[in-house]
Write a protein that binds this DNA or RNA. Structure first.
Length: 510
RNA sequence: GGCCCGUUCGUCUAAGGGCUAGGACACCACCCUUUCACGGUGGUGAUACGGGUUCGAAUCCCGUACGGGCUACCA
């Protein structure tokens, strides 16, 4: 029988969680759940120099928001911990030493300066970036070129060193990618990657192989940017645990920005979020906006991400997470990268907003806008009517703020210029009379307000069309929003009369 | 430069050798609407190029071009 499906994602706590990262998590998650397996989250904190405090918690917060909680992780426990790479340090050295004993790796004592001068010295026009590979390793200071005595002496004296894989200078290596099929590499073109760093921490290359083995990972899905280093990982599997035990690989297509691989800079540059949630770098204080704060619903965020490189073969585009789990298959994941389209992203959110009960929208709005929480229960009822009225005009949760603002307080700006040129004494008279009529009304409803308005207009021989816009400007402040009489209805008698009354003298005097 | 991956409307994509290359976003027009949206109807718009294989190619093969990724003691 096939072993249980176990997939893992290994974020590095060095910053925010971007679109591509969340999508990788999502596809891992979907595949695992579809096959009744586990989704493991391992923290890739090997590079201490870039480790940012708070980033680890941030990653979990993002996943929680998206509804993609791992089954095993630093925070959730599990049988294969620890899940933080820094806490697994001794394990990696053991396997690195094993490779050396087998003759598949070696110690290298080259200093950063020596490496730099190597790259400088061997740089040519044909080869601008020489690699530490089979053509150059015998010219460097390592356990291949030094005598055993020298090596022992350097080691015992505590000389800083790394362990490098020794890639063969001939032959090729190939594997089957679930998305791309057979991929093969000429081993002579692959360099001797560092496996264990001078500080004793593993590089990704060693860690991913050792951990995938120890954590019994059955499927390894990651971004396409890892494809070039796949031969190193395949080689490590061959030498350490055997190819039969190796997980199935899938290299996901990249999510592209307007210019190549999506970067966090693109967000600021083109005006859309690139991170799941706001991320503030504690070192620089710089904040990059997240989809959540921009007003996206998690369902929509997940949905739009899922469709960037995958579809179910039908014309269905709106999927809940549960539906995705059902419909997902790695066979239908694309091989080509997908350019992120913010306009379409907003459309997904609009669709999700449309299908949501008012109460849930209000709940989401309350969590986003503190000011809404101060409303009492009576206003809460009013809030429901308002949300129902403006929801069709909103793509994002944040759009509600603007759409609802004139219900909550007097309009911040009033576009008097839109009606001033056509204002006259007849209109002044009309609105004064309207205030009397409205003031005397017993039943305050949109229908009765409209009827009364039109009757008065007819009596005074003014076309209602001439008066609708002025009324709107008075109540809303601009040329937007739902029907004026609905607005007046919700505003209530007192506030409606106040807003009309305030503007009449202004218009009449100019 | 080298290695690897990729290429269908502007964007996301459907079509796994056989209808007029279908849908969605965006855009345009019209309808609805005495505002702005929503909605409805319709429209513009694509198989990168060149060779093969085949009765027949978007689809399979080769080449070219273009795009992207990698080329760190980062992931």
């Amino acid at each position: 029988m096939s072993k249980k499906v176990r997939v893992r994602f290994a974020p590095s706590p060095t910053g925010g969680l971007h679109l591509g990262g969340v999508r990788t998590v999502l596809y891992n998650y979907l595949f695992a759940k579809k096959h009744g397996g586990d989704f493991i989250l391992r923290i890739e904190d090997t590079d201490q120099s870039r480790y940012v405090p708070g980033a680890e918690e941030y990653i979990f917060d993002c996943l929680r928001w998206c509804g993609l909680e791992p089954d095993e992780s630093v925070q959730h426990g599990g049988a294969f911990g620890p899940y933080r790479q820094s806490e697994r340090k001794p394990i990696y050295r053991e396997y690195a030493e094993k490779l050396i004993a087998q003759g598949d790796a070696y110690y290298a004592f080259d200093t950063p300066a020596e490496l730099e001068s190597m790259r400088e010295n061997y740089k040519t026009e044909q080869n601008p970036s020489p690699q530490y590979d089979h053509t150059l390793r015998l010219k460097m200071r390592n356990s291949l070129t030094l005598s055993p005595e020298e090596v022992t002496a350097l080691l015992t004296s505590g000389t800083p060193h790394v362990i490098r894989i020794q890639m063969p200078g001939t032959g090729s290596i190939s594997f089957t990618d679930m998305i791309r099929g057979e991929v093969s590499f000429d081993m002579a073109t692959v360099d001797d990657k560092v496996l264990l760093k001078a500080d004793g921490m593993p590089t990704y290359h060693l860690a991913v192989v050792v951990d995938d083995h120890l954590m019994q990972i059955s499927h390894a899905f990651r971004g396409e940017e890892w494809l070039p280093s796949a031969p190193v990982h395949i080689r490590l599997w061959e030498k350490l645990f055997g190819r039969e035990a190796m997980p199935a690989w899938a290299h996901l297509p990249l999510i592209l920005g307007p210019n190549g691989k999506l970067s966090k800079r693109d967000g600021a540059k083109y005006g859309f979020p690139v991170f799941a949630m706001n991320w503030t770098d504690p070192k620089t204080g710089e904040t990059v906006e997240g989809f959540r704060e921009r007003g996206f619903l998690p369902e929509a965020f997940i949905n739009l991400l899922s469709m960037l490189g995958w579809n179910d073969g039908t014309e269905k585009e709106i999927f809940s997470l549960d539906e995705l789990v059902q419909a997902f298959s790695m066979e239908r994941v694309h091989s080509a990268g997908a350019k992120f389209d913010y306009e379409k992203a907003k459309w997904y959110n609009q669709e999700w907003l449309r299908g949501k009960p008012v109460q849930e929208i209000i709940l989401a709005l309350r969590s986003q806008f503190e000011s809404l929480n101060s409303l009492n229960s009576l206003n809460s009822l009013r809030l429901e009517r308002i949300v129902e009225l403006v929801r069709d005009r909103c793509h994002l949760l944040t759009d509600f703020k603007e759409q609802m603002s004139y219900f909550m307080e007097y309009p911040k700006t009033v576009d008097v210029a839109a009606i001033q040129p056509k204002w006259n004494v007849e209109k002044t008279a009309f609105f004064q009379a309207l205030m009397d009529r409205y003031g005397a009304m017993e039943s305050w409803s949109a229908a009765s307000l409209e009827e009364s308005f039109k009757t008065l207009a007819t009596e005074q021989s003014i076309k209602p069309g001439e008066l609708m816009l002025p009324l709107r400007i008075m109540l809303v402040g601009g040329k937007f929003g739902p029907g004026v009489f609905d607005i007046a209805d919700i505003l209530g008698k007192e506030e409606t009369l106040h807003r009309i009354g305030v503007l009449i003298p202004q218009l009449a005097n100019n």
